[in-house]
Write a protein that binds this DNA or RNA. Structure first.
Length: 423
DNA sequence: TCTGGGGTCCTAGGACCC
DNA sequence: TCTGGGGTCCTAGGACCC
């Protein structure tokens, strides 16, 4: 099987993260059933436990559940990713005061190295309290000798509130009992397809999965599954990645608020995405050699279906907006067939390369509104004392005003209104 | 009659994640 | 009428080469 890990990993994540961010700015939402909606207010992508209890599921289309949900008292907010990104950075700043190494896994999840902690569970509880105090974000922490077990522990911490938001799976003696209470579908890396295959073999729970011979799992779940089983047994297969590896691909894709039936309109949209992806490239200090444009009709709609994608190769690696737009718009023209109601389009880049010579990441000019918003937060939370009511109220008012401003079109991701490009 | 074999590269598609 | 967006990794299979 391999050698047992002597490390301790913590996985800390923000509870209903997007919802919690909204609550930081709108304390009246505390305790209420709250959801955050995807782009175009399409569907629910974050739910508080109160909203889950009212039957709102992940991915529920808002137009379908709106009447029922609002009648039941559910509050919905449009998403604001710039804001969540800023909050995420603040939470990670706190993590870094508790652990020497932090791997930012996603906007709301980080792995931390707790190997040197004398009492990891106690440290985790203290960290939770500090994050809550300094940022306003509630978290849960899972502890384990591998990242996979830390992840399972985090899941358990969420499911069993009696644990006080911290679950410790570092002790092999008590681990099995917990794993028996976790379904295979809830194990990190086991999706719907793998769940079906495992169930067909009679494997229902995480402890049953852990009991399999890793080599026997390979034909069933590929090498990914093999590693997973080892990690469930406390054998380290992947360590922390504290410096993010160079990005391999990049995409800008959107669903349209309404069907697109006109070539010029599709070109407008895709030109806008090309502009966005150019900004993104420059922000990461990268160039691309080729881009793929795709668009398709809605999988939910009746009527003729069409899904196309086309590759455009650029003469030289570039992040130049005009070149990207021209390539993308040309691809749209080649791929275009009238008579369809297109619902979504996008640009996908792969083969990202650093520029010749010394890599230089362009620094994105800071948005003064966001800077001010975060400064305002400091007066509401944390280091400046949450008890100081007067400055807190002033700070909150300022924050609300800025947040309303950040809802302006410049911050949203709807299909933009830009001049038609004729090529 | 017997119809190579192994390597690399590329691409598409599946599966999974948050 | 309205059903998210952005990533990673793995595998299979075709093209190509010697």
């Amino acid at each position: 099987m391999g050698q047992a890990s002597d490390r301790v990993f913590a996985l800390s994540d923000g509870n209903s993260f997007y919802c919690s961010c909204e609550r930081v700015f709108e304390p009246a939402l505390e305790g209420r059933a709250l959801i955050v909606l995807s782009n175009n207010d399409g569907c629910a992508i974050a739910r508080t436990p109160e909203a889950k209890a009212l039957g709102i599921r992940m991915g529920d289309p808002w137009f379908r559940v709106r009447d029922r949900a609002t009648a039941a008292g559910v509050v919905a907010r449009s998403s604001n990713y710039a804001l969540y990104g800023d909050m995420s950075r603040r939470v990670n700043d706190v993590y870094r005061t508790f652990a020497p190494d932090v791997e930012i896994y996603s906007i709301d999840e980080s792995f931390l190295d707790f190997s040197d902690a004398a009492r990891p569970a106690a440290l985790a509880r203290e960290m939770r309290a500090t994050v809550r105090r300094w940022t306003g974000i509630p978290t849960c922490v899972g502890l384990g000798p591998t990242r996979t077990l830390a992840k399972v522990a985090n899941h358990i911490a969420k499911r069993f509130p009696d644990l006080g938001g911290v679950c410790d799976l570092t002790d092999p003696a008590t681990r099995g009992g917990w794993l028996a209470r976790v379904g295979v579908a809830d194990v990190w890396g086991v999706g719907p397809a793998s769940t079906t295959r495992l169930r067909a073999q009679g494997i229902e729970t995480a402890d049953q999965l852990a009991a399999l011979d890793p080599r026997a799992v390979r034909p069933l779940l590929t090498v990914v599954g093999e590693r997973l089983v080892r990690e469930l047994n406390g054998v380290l297969c992947a360590d922390l990645e504290t410096t993010p590896p160079r990005r391999k691909g990049m995409a800008v894709t959107r669903s349209f608020g309404r069907p697109v039936t006109d070539l010029a309109e599709m070109q407008e949209a895709v030109a806008a995405y090309a502009t966005r992806v150019g900004e993104k490239l420059r922000r990461h200090g990268l160039l691309t050699r080729r881009l793929t444009v795709f668009f398709h009709t809605s999988p939910f709609a009746d009527g003729p279906a069409r899904s196309v994608s086309g590759l455009a190769t650029l003469r030289e690696p570039t992040s130049d907006t005009l070149e990207l737009v021209q390539a993308a718009v040309g691809a749209v023209r080649r791929l275009w067939r009238p008579g369809f109601r297109y619902a979504k389009a996008g640009i996908v880049l792969d083969e990202l390369v650093p520029p010749e010579g010394a890599p230089r990441a362009l620094i994105e000019p800071a948005d003064p509104r966001r800077e001010a918003l975060m400064a305002a937060l400091d007066h509401v939370n944390g280091r400046f004392g949450r008890g100081a009511l007067a400055p807190a109220r002033a700070g909150l008012r300022r924050a609300w005003a800025l947040k309303a401003e950040m809802r302006s079109p410049a911050y949203t991701t709807r299909l933009p209104d830009i001049p038609v490009l004729r090529c």
